[in-house]
Design a protein around this nucleic acid. Structure first.
Ligand SMILES: NC(=O)c1ccc[n+]([C@@H]2O[C@H](COP(=O)([O-])OP(=O)(O)OC[C@H]3O[C@@H](n4cnc5c(N)ncnc54)[C@H](O)[C@@H]3O)[C@@H](O)[C@H]2O)c1
Ligand SMILES: NC(=O)c1ccc[n+]([C@@H]2O[C@H](COP(=O)([O-])OP(=O)(O)OC[C@H]3O[C@@H](n4cnc5c(N)ncnc54)[C@H](O)[C@@H]3O)[C@@H](O)[C@H]2O)c1
Lengths: 259, 259
DNA sequence: ATGCCTTTGTGAACGCGTGCACAAAGATGG
DNA sequence: CCATCTTTGTGCACGCGTTCACAAAGGCAT
């Protein structure tokens, strides 16, 4: 996470923008960009918050960490705010990105135009499959894994995207880090271990679906009497690992706490 | 919610699993599944936490919301815990899912095998492009948007995935909701508005990259004593709306031009 | 200028999530 | 059966993030 660099027990406010705020800045930026394209000169916190899907008080507090860029009684200057947020996010420069693992997902990412328009440039596509080498994907030739270090070094890449199978992710990660990458976006369903100083963010679609399923189940079971303790499959602690062979025809149990 | 005293409420407890905990359950489940495949009978909170990439105290507290499924001095029974978490997440049943927008990303999702193995089944692929209709993607024929309502109804689908361009997302969302969908996973970079009772989770790759860029910039600027204010572009409040005249064919525009 | 009206910026209260630290529970060995 | 050792389950304190509510700031009309 954040590199705890505050040796000042007192106030941690200097450049300390809360992580939660940082995560919302891209949201505001997107909404502001849309307004900018419609040549809207100013917006109130209320309007912008609505467009970004957040609470206006939260938005104002978020902006307060960046400085006082608004005008009371009027709102915020769209263009100016777009610049300030872009600068804060480091988007006034282009970030070369390397994508490793050009399969279904990697190819989709390579073809995605939303990156370039937001300050990211696909510097190279890397894959271990020799039959892919040289093949153009999204107008860029796929390069073999052997080239990884060279590509990172030549282009000064600091952000890497991993879209390989889970089994290869850690290995790829290690090579990326060794090559000088300090930020990784991981799509493989694995926990990556990296040295301090390297940021990792993960995107796991299965997890998202599972979270949705949890709430979905809860909605469905809302009217079900939640007092029963339907016989679970195998017994709990006793070391007699009676593995569940099946949970019977009806796998519908109203999860409830044991008495 | 009814977050009563956590003493002995016997009534308001099973429903009160913290959202943060729910988000980690899939992580534990993944790690446990791997252990299960290696026929490991039990794990300690320390081992499992390490495998899941979290703190052991956090893991224990998370599990405590589900009940007391561990054995002191020993650890947790892997098989049993897999079942308990699966049940809690609602994965003891299969969830049919419909994917709308079979472009680069949608096709990649359709081809992804990680869904089926986690309790999700792609019930249908929907796209507005007539030329795609009938075309098989991942072994499933793409169906036209007209079929959406029928597909959702026939298969009892309650989870929908949106992978259309941003401009069509809200419209698609509305149709999904009208058709009976109550959980949506949105990949389009837009804020969706839905009626109460419908859950929306979003995955925005650009936002992830932007967050990485923020930290990356901070790392790079760590040694730069310079404070800030590197000659901003336009002046602040005064509405000197220097509208962008350029901006190529593509919609989105990158950062604002500095001085 | 002056007063009114709108909207920002933020102090303060609150709630959630995290991590520590330890007593209790249970296994294990003698 | 008792002692010891391991590991869980959780009370507690702390810090972050969210939200409320309002004084202050600034535009604008008169
Ligand atoms: N496809 C999806 O929609 C989707 C969804 C969620 C998660 N994921 C995850 O994303 C990852 C990629 O998924 P996919 O569907 O694109 O898989 P894929 O099999 O289509 O592609 C994987 C690619 O990685 C390459 N590769 C394998 N080992 C490599 C290595 N050591 N170095 C470089 N390249 C290597 C392979 O040659 C292949 O081209 C997987 O971990 C998957 O679990 C994918
Ligand atoms: N490709 C990526 O890696 C990537 C990454 C991040 C975000 N996204 C987002 O995901 C979405 C899809 O991206 P993509 O690259 O697959 O785009 P794409 O253009 O390749 O595919 C979009 C598909 O949606 C279909 N479509 C359009 N309007 C529709 C409607 N009203 N109903 C049903 N289908 C409709 C189109 O026919 C097309 O097949 C976009 O919003 C994009 O911003 C994509």
């Amino acid at each position: 996470m954040a590199t705890g660099r505050n040796h000042r027990p007192a106030t941690t406010r200097s450049r300390g923008i809360p992580e939660a705020t940082v995560a919302r800045l891209p949201l505001y930026l997107r909404a502001l960009t849309a307004l900018s394209e419609r040549s809207v000169p100013t917006v109130s916190s209320e309007e912008l918050a609505s467009a970004a899907g957040v609470n206006s008080a939260k938005l104002r507090k978020d902006f307060s960490y960046l400085g006082s860029y608004g005008t009371r009684g009027v709102g915020y200057d769209v263009e100016y705010l777009v610049y300030q947020i872009s600068r804060e996010l480091g988007l006034t420069q282009d970030w070369p990105v390397v994508i490793v693992g050009i399969g279904n997902l990697g190819a989709a990412l390579a073809n995605y135009g939303g990156f370039a328009s937001r300050g990211f440039r696909v510097a190279a596509l890397i894959d271990a499959d020799p039959s892919l080498s040289g093949k153009p994907v999204a107008g860029i030739g796929v390069q073999h894994t052997d080239e990884l270090e060279k590509v990172v070094d030549d282009n000064g890449v600091s952000i890497g995207v991993i879209a390989t199978p889970a089994g290869a992710a850690q290995q790829v990660c290690d090579r990326l880090v060794a090559a000088g990458i300090t930020s990784i976006l991981n799509f493989a369903p694995t926990v990556l271990s990296v040295p301090e100083g390297v940021d990792v963010r993960k995107v796991d679609l299965s997890i998202e679906l599972q979270i949705l399923a949890f709430h979905e189940q809860r909605k469905a079971g809302e009217d079900v009497p939640d007092e029963e303790d339907t016989a679970p499959p195998a017994a709990p602690p006793a070391a007699s690992v009676t593995k569940r062979t099946d949970s019977g025809p009806d796998g519908d149990l109203p999860a409830v706490m044991p008495a």
